[in-house]
Design a protein around this nucleic acid. Sequence first.
RNA 1: GCGACCGUAGCUCAGUUGGUUAGAGCACCAGAUUGUGGAUCUGGGUGUCGCGGGUUCGAUCCCCGUCGGUCGCCCCA
Length: 425
Amino acid sequence: MDTPLFQPIPGMVDLTAPEVLLWQHLEEQARQLLPLYGFSEIRTPALEYTPVFTRSLGETTDVVQKEMYTFADRGGRSLTLRPEGTAGVIRYAAGQGAAAEGARLYYLGPMFRCERPQAGRKRQFHQLGVESFGEPNPAADVEVIALQQHLFQSWGLHAFTIDINTRGLPEDRPAVTAGLAAAARPHLDALCADCRRRFDTNIFRLLDCKQAACRQVVDTLPDPASFMSAPSRVYLAEVVRLLQGLNLPVRVNPRLVRGLDYYIHTVWEIRHPALGAQDALSGGGRYRVTLDTKPFDGVGFAAGLERAVMAVQHDQPDRLAALQPPRPVWLVALGPAAREANLRLAQELRQGGCACGLDLGDRSLKAQLRAANRVGAAWAVLRGDRELAAGTATLKNLQDGTQVELPLADVVTKLNAVKGRGTTS
RNA sequence: GCGACCGUAGCUCAGUUGGUUAGAGCACCAGAUUGUGGAUCUGGGUGUCGCGGGUUCGAUCCCCGUCGGUCGCCCCA
């Protein structure tokens, strides 16, 4: 019954240096890239009325049925911590009416799903997503896929694969379900228990079962697209043609299945081999959400940042080390007068843009230099009563051990010039 | 919701077929002319062996429970 004093909730982590530097780097890259495509940021609340999610994602999806953090507020209204980003952005954009037509928004922030944590899956996780609103148009889908490829490239990723598929139009779904059921029914006995259940509940799920026996059966099934209407098939063909025109290395995978109900037409998934069992780096697709009988169309994707960080550490193992902040200057004081003077000096240096640190306690010179060494300082500034009286400071180069006593103003000038970086003047 | 594995120092981990003072590396602290760091040297173990109970002359080790962690299933980013 011990309440953990020092641990966060399972599946939620404290993200700190050095790893957080890599997060910041990926975020900066994204914020630089997305405006090139005309996307601007939206920050929606983390908490929404529960129906915002249930009506968009589909009542029967796993996310809605068993993964949401849902609770009642003091007035008894049902609230939910967002399990994904699209529903909230649609809630906003639909509320803007016609002004939202063609809007391009991106979001970046924490999402929450009450699942069992494992590698690459947290209960509080982070997604970067984009939404491009407007009528279905293969070019819009292709542009978003290209953006994603560009983004991952800017992160230094290269080992990923892009699979696309089509879900067709909503009105095709009965025919596809019936067609798949007819083809699979003779093989029911060969399927695993899960798949026998899926046969009735959601036959599409057969397609991505990992069991070897089920895969054998699935390989004999016809392409679901073969049961779709001509417009659905033409749409996919056009997407593929445009992707080829951009030389994007995309594979059409008829067995790709996505979990949310709102998808129509194009869906895709980007996978990376370094991610373990949860190998989807991002997923996306075209969607249609009906609000108040009015259809709301868009295309977008969401990328898992935890997974992106893992992938970058795999593809660019040296990236993190290159992000270390500049080595600071360390101010060393001998005696209380110098300590107080150093506090002022530190502020002066920092105002000038020079990173520095200092010992706030009453420690020996030896201990202070050891501390300077520990933080990787390139320079130490030493001051005691002697320097204070003379208006000087001793500037020590911690790389080669040389030191020189200079007027304080010269030391400040010099350090501001190097801004705390390592190399000698 | 289900399953597997793990829990010993600040960190990474060894260890005891059940036995007396629980170990290593790294990290950390201290080294006396009270103004000089790093590499080396000397000294220092900093611990509720996750917690509770059971078996036993004796438990860190075996058993049960519990808490925590990791990975996997389901599903997803």
